[in-house]
Computed example of a mutant assay.
Amino acid sequence: MDDVSFRRLHRSMLLARRIDEEAIALQRQGVLPAYAPAKGQEAAQVGSAAALDLTRDFAFPTYRELGVAVAMDVDLVAYLSTHLNIWHGGMYDSQAARLAPFNAVVGGPVTHAVGWAMGAKLDETGGAAITYFGDGASSQGDVHEAMNFAGVYRLPVVFFCQNNGWAISVPTTQQVAGGSVAARAAGYGLEGVRVDGNDVEAVFEATRAALDRARDGGGATVIEAMTYRLGPHSTSDDPGRYRSLADERAWSERDPIARAARRLPEVEVAEAERHADEVVEQVRKGLLELTPRPAEELFSFVYREPTTALLEQQRVWKESLDV
């Protein structure tokens, strides 16, 4: 990877970390109802998303892919508006951004990505889908069905598992038989790759190769990025109840951002820090300025054509306002 590209990856990772820290602070201040931190997983997220071709590919995130949104240059105020609880799925244009609304259903985005990939294959668009999920979600039945479907139809999709060691409070060793998500790929006729999820360049290269293969008709790939969630599962979680401080410290020494920064001159790292500070201030200001959406939008965009039941609910709601 050339120096310019690597600097861009480091800059995105650093920005994702700073926005993540600000989101936690906003939740503690009562601005955000809840938040799922991504600290420690920036290389896996940024490195994989940076490999996408945004003219034809599409990404399907969970609720923890802030680094993906940053790497894809999504409007971060619009993205984080979902956490502010004033709009479901974010206020950005998903079609234009090539990033689906984030999904809080465990394993939920995996089936959506496979459906999109089937459409892309039938339409011959030449694009590929990437879907994100965790090691815990890999045990969901939907994920296995999606992989089997992708294998049977040789669909252009990359299954990107961020194995951060914990399914909330359950270690991977207790919920992934065999200990490897990537190894499961063989059972569905897919390629399986395990990569150092804290090495942003390695993640980028592995994902780019998988996307190229998918677009060329070679079928799906399961990528297992081995990383670690340095923070809690969510702002309502206390990781100290189920893992040791020594383990956290050991993984902190493998921090993906510090690791990338060692390849760069100090002046470039300092400039990236200044840029991140500026963006964080803009995002914070933008979030605080958002106001609730019109209440009637509760009934908008649910279906392309509103159903009889939905129209009846809307009528009852309007009548309740007049009481």
Rank of each mutant, 00 (worst) to 15 (best):
R8F: 06
L9D: 05
M13P: 00
L14T: 01
L14F: 08
R18P: 00
I19S: 04
D20I: 08
D20Y: 07
A23I: 00
L26G: 06
Q27M: 08
V31A: 00
Y35I: 01
K39S: 13
K39L: 13
A44K: 02
A44E: 04
Q45L: 13
V46D: 09
A51V: 06
A51R: 09
D53G: 03
D53S: 05
R56N: 03
Y63Q: 05
L66S: 11
G67M: 10
G67A: 11
V68C: 07
A71R: 08
M72H: 11
V74R: 12
A78H: 12
A78T: 09
T82Q: 15
H83C: 11
L84E: 05
G89D: 01
Y92G: 06
A96Y: 04
A96S: 14
L99G: 08
P101Y: 11
V106T: 12
V114I: 12
A117Q: 11
A117F: 08
A117V: 10
M118N: 09
M118W: 14
K121S: 09
G127M: 10
A128I: 05
T131P: 01
T131L: 10
A137M: 06
D142E: 15
D142T: 13
V143Q: 12
A146G: 08
F149I: 00
V157N: 04
V158M: 12
F160D: 03
F160M: 09
A167T: 00
V170T: 15
A177F: 10
G179A: 13
A182P: 02
Y188K: 08
G189C: 07
R194I: 10
G197L: 09
D199P: 01
A206H: 06
A206F: 03
A210E: 10
R213Y: 01
R213W: 02
G217I: 08
G217W: 03
G219K: 00
I223W: 09
I223C: 07
E224A: 01
A225D: 02
R229S: 03
L230C: 02
S236N: 10
P239C: 02
P239S: 04
S244Y: 09
S244G: 05
A246W: 03
A246L: 05
E248Y: 14
E248T: 13
W251G: 02
W251D: 07
E253Y: 04
D255P: 01
P256W: 15
A260C: 09
R262F: 07
L264H: 11
E266S: 13
E271K: 13
R274A: 15
R274F: 08
H275A: 15
V283H: 00
R284A: 07
G286E: 12
L287S: 03
L290F: 02
P292E: 00
R293Q: 15
L311H: 03
R315T: 09
V316Q: 15
V316M: 12
W317Q: 07
W317C: 07
L321C: 07
V323G: 15
V323R: 14
